[in-house]
């Protein structure tokens, strides 16, 4: 029946939807990081010329989408779906951006996994020929996330060494079924993950909460496709940070499918200079994987420096309420196989 399915969780996309445009707009701190020069726009401050932090995040989101669409040689009127989300309650950044753009909108919440989730669903819609152009986007903002999930900005506390720094940034990709412009990359397989929870309750250690989900999706993907880690030029996770990165390596070692150290990295480790920028375990948030993918990883595929990249964004599916009620933190991970043109 479902002929495009391979194995238990993986989906093959024979029409190979192309990514034709990508853009990432970030805050000042991210601009000062090692990837600073690759971003399409670096804001001067966290307000991005807006009245509130929420509006600032929306501005980055809109800018990233508009830039991705125009770089992909298209116009907003031609785009048939906007698939996206963010970290705020009722995903207001994404839906308020959709209000301004006028593109039919499918709101997604996958916590920090949203970029991979939207790419996976967008590619499936294209492969099913339900649309020909789709834009996918995700964002986060340090200040909006901090005030929603943790303490007010001016509250004087110490951060735990396992804590991660929410990235201020938005990334967007334009997916196209029959592109008029050269493709940056093709989406050829996607693997949507299960929710996995190994009982981590420490909200200051999100990497540890998400690593088991990452391992689960990787194992499922390798089993479904009969491949192994060495078959990919690069495996990139979304925002596991240093602790989650190390734990994922360990979990995969224990499952006898070790990840090669030189071919596995994490967006949360790439975006900041962890020594100089005081971000503890690394970056986190939807905007972390979204901005690193669209500023740094996709152009690498376009230049054919790498041929096959498994991009897997991870999310921690907890809320303030569930944390306060003592629930552990469930994780999720979605993987997207990207191949250079």
């Amino acid at each position: 029946m479902a002929s495009k399915r391979i194995g238990l969780q993986t989906i093959e996309l024979p029409l190979r939807p192309a990514i034709t445009g990508c853009a990432a707009c970030v805050g000042r701190k991210e601009g000062e990081g090692p990837l600073g020069e690759y971003f399409d726009f670096v804001a001067k401050d966290e307000m991005v010329g807006q009245e509130t932090f929420e509006l600032a995040e929306k501005q980055l989101y809109l800018d990233a989408i508009r830039k991705a669409i125009s770089k992909g040689g298209s116009r907003p009127e031609e785009v048939q779906f906007l698939l996206g989300g963010d970290l705020l309650n009722q995903i207001i950044t994404a839906s308020f951006s959709a209000r301004d753009l006028g593109i039919p909108f499918i709101g997604l919440y996958g916590a920090c996994s949203t970029m991979a989730e939207s790419l996976a669903l967008g590619s499936m819609l294209l492969d099913g020929e339900h649309a020909s152009q789709i834009v996918c986007a995700a964002s986060s903002h340090f200040c909006t996330a901090e005030r929603q999930y943790r303490y007010p900005l001016e509250f004087g506390t110490q951060r735990s060494p396992t804590a991660q720094w929410t990235v201020t940034g938005a990334g967007a990709s334009l997916l196209n079924l029959s592109p008029a412009v050269p493709a940056l990359a093709h989406v050829t397989q996607v693997c949507l993950g299960r929710v996995v929870d190994l009982g981590i309750t420490d909200a200051n250690n999100m990497g540890a909460a998400m690593a088991p989900a990452a391992a689960d999706t990787l194992l499922a993907f390798f089993a479904d496709t009969h491949t192994q880690p060495e078959d990919y030029d690069l495996i990139v996770t979304g925002d596991l940070g240093q602790v989650g990165h190390d734990l994922l390596m360990q979990l995969m070692r224990e499952q006898r499918q070790p990840l090669p150290g030189d071919r596995y990295t994490d967006c949360g480790l790439l975006i900041y200079d962890r020594k100089a920028q005081d971000v503890h375990a690394g970056g986190s948030g939807c905007g972390c994987s979204a901005s690193v993918l669209n500023a740094w990883l996709l152009p690498m595929l376009q230049r054919r420096e790498i041929r096959r990249m498994l991009f897997m964004a991870t999310g921690a599916l907890m809320s303030l309420t569930s944390s306060q009620q003592g629930e552990s933190i469930p994780g999720i991970a979605h993987a997207v196989l990207l191949e250079s043109p």
Binding site: G27, K29, D45, E46, F53, F142, P152, L153, E154
Partner: peptide, 9 residues
């Protein structure tokens, strides 16, 4: 609260 705004980091 009236006089100041929170600072970004």
């Amino acid at each position: 609260g009236f006089l100041f705004k929170p600072h970004s980091k």
